[in-house]
Design a binder for these strands. Structure first.
Lengths: 346, 346
DNA sequence: GTTCATAATGAAACCGCTTTCTCAGCCTCG
DNA sequence: CGAGGCTGAGAAAGCGGTTTCATTATGAAC
């Protein structure tokens, strides 16, 4: 079959001496077709290297067996650098889709883009996975629009009314903070979002706050600095912290993400402070690179594998019309060397 | 329009009082339609939130405006961990596709899978981008099959007859090795592939060998150890190197990838050798994490942004039937601290 | 020996769009 | 004034499947 025109079901029908409808049925193992006919037809199809045309099939059945992954980036972050965390998620989502027999379309979007539901409107995908940090205020209108259009989607992030899969960020914050407290730290700074712009980071803050209070340590506003999930932001926030007199003598930092933690470690090092010795640091995410920082970063691991699988599962359920609930995935503290130091003065 | 059935071009035709064919033309700004008619129709389409059905369109035109990215993994490597380098590539490919107006399907494959051309056979994609390290011997049959089927594809890697985009690995090897030589190193080990199983790594080795010879340093087989692109592999190779008597007193390592370099640094550290001080190290790739190792890794940067764009461009050209040539992308030496040491004895 | 489910298949409609073919007006030109 | 030439638009034929509906055996049942 060197002719470029790929074989169609009609070709097979001709070769098998049956009608095209029978071929269509046989290829999908319809019980309406006699078993030996099915076998014969499938054999011929195999020989011809025939594959069902995705578009024809999708057009007729009105479903594409394709999911779209929309990763949208905070416009404030570096244009070309994708957060490694999402890259990990992408990996696990890809795998989960393959297992479920769905194709995966991937697209990176600016939050400002008018992407809303394009993928579903044009029937490119049966459902959408939304991935990305970002100010919740920016998301809300989009979500509402999706809901209004009846678009099937799941979102990674913090619970916000819509169908959502997320790590247990609050619990992760508790894990991190308790660890520091157990090591004897009392003045623990938090770098991240404490004002609920980024719900995930905010939940980590809540865990932090809850742990402190539970340990009888009062919250000090001066020990909290806002940052988004980039090194630059973590770096700047830490500098601000070091410069402020009120922060004075913190002995530990809970960074709301590994990237922030890395920026923080840079800032500390530049000021002659040794991370892990002079100041303990805990991050969040457990990026692949967390093992390779110096000192190796103690951090809260998000289970990206499970997360990806769950996102895909839930989305497929939703596409099938089943009712689905939000899911929270536990986190895990990974102890490395960045808290190795005894609490010391800054 | 709360009805679930999405609007079709017929709905628009009805509302605009024209025929459906005219709608189709108008939506694609055909000059066959009077400008004011075009405007009216597009206006209505906008109001209805109408999007052309991808499948219907693709079925009719026989092209999907979609590219497939097949990332296949060396079965020898860890199952769930994707090489960060490919993740970067994926990022840039995604962007390049978006710019060109193509959708991108992403799939991870085992090299052993019978994926060949499935994406094209079923018309899911107009062309395929192949990404992944792997023994060239394993690839050849696949490539030939793709060629035989007339599948449009581009491959990232080393030049091998097929349309291919790659970094100038040999030049990168030269950059790295010359850097070490200029720093005064004479006994430079190479960890990677010196037997042309992995053409990319082998090209780096060739650059290494050429540089040594150009500097009048003879190649010592004992200073070369095979490794694939993982930390474990780099770790083991370095241990082997340290254990072998013939290697004895090397003062520098050129690792064929950053992951190998990181493994090497771990091995050195465990043996009480300080990377960057006792032994200089150069890596290859410039992964995001290279900046965060200790010491920060001097490495050869591959321009993933340009690489992704080029892959996409070339593939689209090929789809259009234009004749395309293999492309080689220059690399760049990024000097950090891992070669900071004066040459010392091991 | 009709009648009637049942099984296996074929014919044809249809999914929503693109594109070719046709055609009605309306000009231009010799 | 009749023969072409344009313009703008409609009718209809696909694209390659899926699915409904109709049809022909084939026994089973009465």
């Amino acid at each position: 079959m060197t002719n470029k025109g790929k074989a169609t079901s009609i070709d097979i029908a001709y070769l098998a001496g049956v009608s095209q409808s029978t071929v269509s049925r046989a290829l999908r193992n319809s019980p309406l077709v006699k078993p030996e006919t099915v076998a014969r037809i499938q054999q011929i199809a195999r020989e011809l290297n025939y594959k069902v045309d995705k578009h024809a099939s999708s057009l007729r059945t009105q479903q594409s067996t394709t999911l779209a992954l929309l990763l949208f980036e905070d416009p404030t972050s570096d244009d070309s650098l994708i957060n490694p965390f999402f890259l990990s998620m992408l990996g696990s989502i890809t795998r989960a889709c393959a297992i479920k027999g769905y194709d995966l379309l991937v697209s990176f979007q600016q939050l400002s883009d008018d992407w809303h539901a394009d993928y579903e409107d044009s029937h490119k995908a049966d459902g959408i996975i939304l991935l990305g940090y970002g100010d919740d205020v920016d998301y809300q209108p989009k979500m509402q629009q999706l809901d209004a259009q009846g678009t099937r989607y799941v979102r990674w992030g913090a619970d916000s009314g819509t169908l959502c899969v997320s790590s247990d960020n609050r619990q992760g914050g508790i894990l991190a903070t308790q660890h520091l407290i157990e090591l004897g730290h009392q003045r623990i700074a938090f770098i991240g979002d404490a004002s609920n712009h980024y719900p995930e980071l905010f939940a980590r803050y809540q865990g932090y706050a809850a742990s402190l209070l539970a340990a009888g340590i009062s919250l000090e506003p001066g020990l909290q600095v806002d940052a988004i999930t980039t090194e630059e932001s973590g770096y700047k926030a830490t500098c601000a912290l070091l410069d402020s007199k009120s922060a004075g003598d913190f002995t530990a930092i809970f960074a709301a993400s590994d990237l922030i933690a890395i920026g923080a470690m840079q800032a500390l090092t530049e000021r002659g402070l040794m991370p892990g010795k002079d100041v303990a640091i805990v991050g969040f995410d457990d990026l692949p690179l967390a093992r390779f920082t110096t000192p190796a970063l103690t951090t809260v691991r998000q289970d990206t594998k499970l997360a990806g699988e769950t996102l895909v599962d839930k989305l497929i359920s939703r596409i099938r019309g089943e009712s689905v609930e939000a899911v929270t995935i536990p986190t895990q503290l990974i102890v490395r060397n960045s808290c190795g130091a005894l609490p010391g003065k800054v």
